[in-house]
Design a protein around this nucleic acid. Structure first.
Length: 466
RNA sequence: GCGGAAUUGGUGAAGUGGUUAACACGCCGGAUUGUGGCUCCGGUAUGCAUGGGUUCGAUCCCCAUAUUUCGCCCCA
């Protein structure tokens, strides 16, 4: 048997429906924030990541999925989304668009050559946003709040937002110098990795878990003390806007992020859920004012974040958040004889073309088996064909909930289904999301008929629940 | 890159160095002559991840590989 590759997953059935639902929420929220969808290639020239993410980062130095193509080009499966989006921004000269800043979002697979564990796969799906062309602290807060609001809308409660500022270049240079001065005298007591980091990227020494509990690490200078006036003021503004947006956060000076392109605001959103795996960072991001120019574009500031959808799913599952997934069918057409089957073929198509979700029998089951199949598929109506009825231009339609059965004229089928499905929905809700009707769920449509699910709804129960 | 645990039908799983690998669910068929969901009856693994080895004999013991899973490191 050929099996899937290590660290990859097949997503299907109800799980696939959940993913689709989450993607719909993401699309709906991004639309409200006016972010445009962008799709960039899954593979890029390796150099993009070497220059963009940073040679010394683990992501580049040991986790890249790279290979030579038949033209002997060095190709890499994208390990993250930002570099590709920024490349596209430059290549397509989006900095020349009239509508600045450029606000983009993506939702796609990334690849990292790692040893899989809970919350860590080789193929992972990330949703992320990038804002290019504004250095306003207000947009920093907006990006963070967008991420938080998506978690909120999905119903996830256990999240914690950590923010920090790496400051501008001057602040970072000063801090870097202070770090080197602090650690150099004790270089021998550091772990092997840190010795290298101290040379190439001293900030990341702070990230080290091996030496985390040592005295030198605890006494290490703190970034926030080295921010110059301008950077400090900027960081305060970000916090002010976050407060205005009602986002709970904590300033955590140890957040430095693993990718080299960040400056000023950096943040991580972690799962704060009992029993969650050790890979508990749900999302993270930050500002990267130097990245566009580093990749050959003009001096354009940027900020973004990415969240792992797989980890989000784990978190939702851990919190037992029930996502509203639609598993029902409008009608199941049943038949036995060949002439009935012929009519079934055309009827099914006609119903489908008129907007009904309809299934029929394809595996020669007897009637009994077809009833069972219709139940399994949660079909609301059963259309039972019978040669005698057909001769009278009639079909039997059975309501699978009330078990009532009626003979209906063929010309009347569409109207009949329309009417009966509508009246069913009055009691329920026809937005298809149904979460507002379940206990313990909040609806976010404000009675305007748009729940986070992106489906339109005009039932009244929304307002009552809100 | 390093370490621990696991792998038995469609599914959840019990189990043993020795003739027919429990049990449950599901599925299929029948009782029910074209109306199911309850009940009863019957059928559902030449097979215990793959490849070697030990043994008279291996699903069980040993080794390797693959995959899964949980950690370390790192990240989403």
């Amino acid at each position: 048997m050929i099996t899937k590759q290590k660290g990859c997953h097949d997503i299907y059935g109800d799980e696939a429906k959940k993913w689709k639902y989450v993607s719909n929420v993401i699309d709906a929220v991004c639309e409200r924030y006016n972010y445009d969808f962008i799709r960039t290639p899954i593979f890029e020239a390796s150099e993009l990541y070497h220059r963009g993410i940073g040679e010394e980062t683990d992501v580049v130095s040991k986790e890249m999925y790279d290979f030579k193509d038949k033209g002997d080009r060095s190709i890499t499966l994208r390990p993250e989304g930002t570099a590709g989006v920024v490349r596209s921004f430059i290549e397509n000269k989006m900095y020349g668009d009239a509508t600045q800043p450029v606000k983009l979002y993506y939702n796609g697979t990334m690849y990292r050559y790692e040893r899989p564990q809970s919350g860590r796969d080789r193929e992972l799906t990330q949703f992320g946003v990038e804002v290019l062309g504004s250095d306003d602290p207000m947009i920093d807060a907006e990006v963070i709040s967008l991420a938080v609001n998506i978690y909120r809308i999905l119903g996830l409660k256990g999240i914690k937002v950590n923010i920090n500022s790496l400051g501008d270049k001057e602040s970072r240079d000063n801090y870097r110098k202070a770090l080197v001065e602090h650690f150099m005298p004790h270089v021998d007591s550091l772990c092997e990795d840190c010795k290298v980091r101290l040379q190439k990227n001293p900030l990341r020494v702070l990230d080290c878990k091996v030496d985390a509990d040592t005295e030198i690490m605890k006494n290490a200078p703190v970034m926030t003390d080295y921010l110059n006036e301008e950077s400090k003021k900027r960081f305060e503004m970000v916090q002010k806007y976050l407060n205005l947006l009602d986002i709970d956060f904590e300033v955590n000076p140890s957040i430095v992020r693993g990718l080299d392109y960040y400056d000023h605001t950096v943040f991580e959103i972690e799962a704060d859920i009992e029993g969650f795996g050790s890979q508990n960072v749900l999302g993270g991001g930050g500002r990267y004012n130097g990245l566009v120019s580093a990749l050959g574009g003009p001096e354009v500031p940027g900020i973004g974040f990415a969240m792992g959808l797989g980890r989000l799913m784990l978190a939702l599952e851990k919190e037992q958040v029930e996502l509203p997934i639609n598993n029902s069918l409008d009608a199941f057409v049943m038949y036995v004889s060949d002439t009935e089957k012929e009519y079934a073929t055309t009827l099914v198509q006609e119903l489908r073309m008129n907007g009904f979700s309809v299934e029929t029998e394809y595996t020669n089951r007897g009637l009994k088996g077809q009833f069972k199949q219709a139940d399994r598929l949660n079909s609301r109506f059963l259309i039972i064909l019978n040669d005698t009825d057909l001769e009278n231009n009639q079909v039997k339609i059975k309501n699978n909930k009330t078990k009532e059965e009626e003979l209906v004229d063929i010309d009347y089928i569409l109207y009949y289904l329309d009417e009966h499905l509508m009246s069913e929905d009055d009691a329920d809700c026809d937005c298809g999301c149904s979460h507002e009707h379940e206990e313990g769920h909040e609806c976010h449509c404000n009675g305007e008929g748009n729940c986070g699910c992106g489906n339109h709804c005009d039932c009244h129960s929304h307002e009552e629940n809100e």
